[in-house]
Design a protein around this nucleic acid. Structure first.
Lengths: 165, 165
DNA sequence: CTTGGAATGTCAACAAGGCTGACTTAAACT
DNA sequence: AGTTTAAGTCAGCCTTGTTGACATTCCAAG
């Protein structure tokens, strides 16, 4: 349990261990998105719609600009998705009070119903994984993921986490 | 440290905790792919090329069918990517000895050079995250990811892991 | 030896969801 | 008044996924 060069056990930082972590991320992410994808495939929606609905639900009244920054896409790309969601009556766009240039986004009842369906499916898999791995593993999982984010995204993630708990 | 209903502390399984884990996966995966994506953007390649190159490097001589199953895409989709890689001299396709229908895939020197560049970038971020989180967190990270995979993908992942260590 | 099935490759068409660039409208700020 | 900002829109492009149809090659079973 000791490393000859540093006195610490750094075997977990070998290229082989890192490669295994990379592959684990790849395969796990596929599982992570699989269940919502199956639900969305039946409708005219895709993963982009899921993400929009998720974060609007998470932060009701968020502005388009804010959502743009969270999702990390261009406004043209988001707009295409948002337009269909509004047309289909899943999302409502309200003009801002203080600043009337802004549009604040909210889920309708139908939107909330879809969000619920999607996140129930995704949470079920997550819950199974968490349960199988145990609380200590989950804590480590969260730590590594946080450390892997870009600083900007980490700030946004932590702000969301703060606001939700 | 006790749960009234079960006697265990199951607070890590609340919907809020699961939602945070879901968002962590989303933001972290963006960071995970960001560095290779930047390198690939300069060339005529994308993430699909990276994945193909990664797994061919990982299992030299793999057949197209095998790669298909690992990547989880259609042969038409993979073929488009593979064709450009072969045309550009990054991948070599050799007819099988035993079964001449099969094509065995190998990286050329140029292919290995690109793979190295991409995986160096990706590993650097992974290494920083691992180091920041520590060995115990990394173990938990791996456990949760494994539990999150579809059974088929877990088998493939474990087989790869086995063969590499 | 022939035939059926498997592995591969290819062509065409399509869709989702990214992107850039250019431009408009309305509101707010200076 | 002029500039900046938020949002939306149009057009066009790219990557990467999909289906369906079809050809080729080869192995293996009848």
């Amino acid at each position: 349990m000791s490393d000859p060069s540093t006195g610490e056990n750094l075997l977990y930082l070998t290229d082989e261990q890192l490669r295994q972590g990379i592959e684990a991320m790849f395969f796990a992410y596929r599982g992570f998105t699989a269940d919502p994808d199956r639900i969305l495939a039946d409708m005219a929606y895709g993963r982009a719609h899921h993400r929009a609905v998720h974060f609007i639900n998470r932060a009701p009244g968020t502005t388009v600009n804010n959502l743009l920054a969270i999702l990390g896409v261009t406004k043209q790309s988001l707009n295409r998705v948002l337009r269909t969601l509004i047309e289909d009556g899943l999302v409502e766009s309200r003009v801002g009070n203080a600043d009337k240039r802004e549009r604040h986004l909210y889920l309708t009842d139908d939107g909330r119903a879809l969000e619920q369906r999607l996140s129930d499916a995704q949470r079920a898999r997550m819950r199974a994984a968490y349960r199988a791995a145990g609380p200590q593993a989950v804590a480590g999982f969260r730590q590594v993921l946080e450390a892997m984010m870009d600083p900007d995204m980490r700030r946004r993630y932590l702000a969301l986490k703060e606001s939700g708990s």
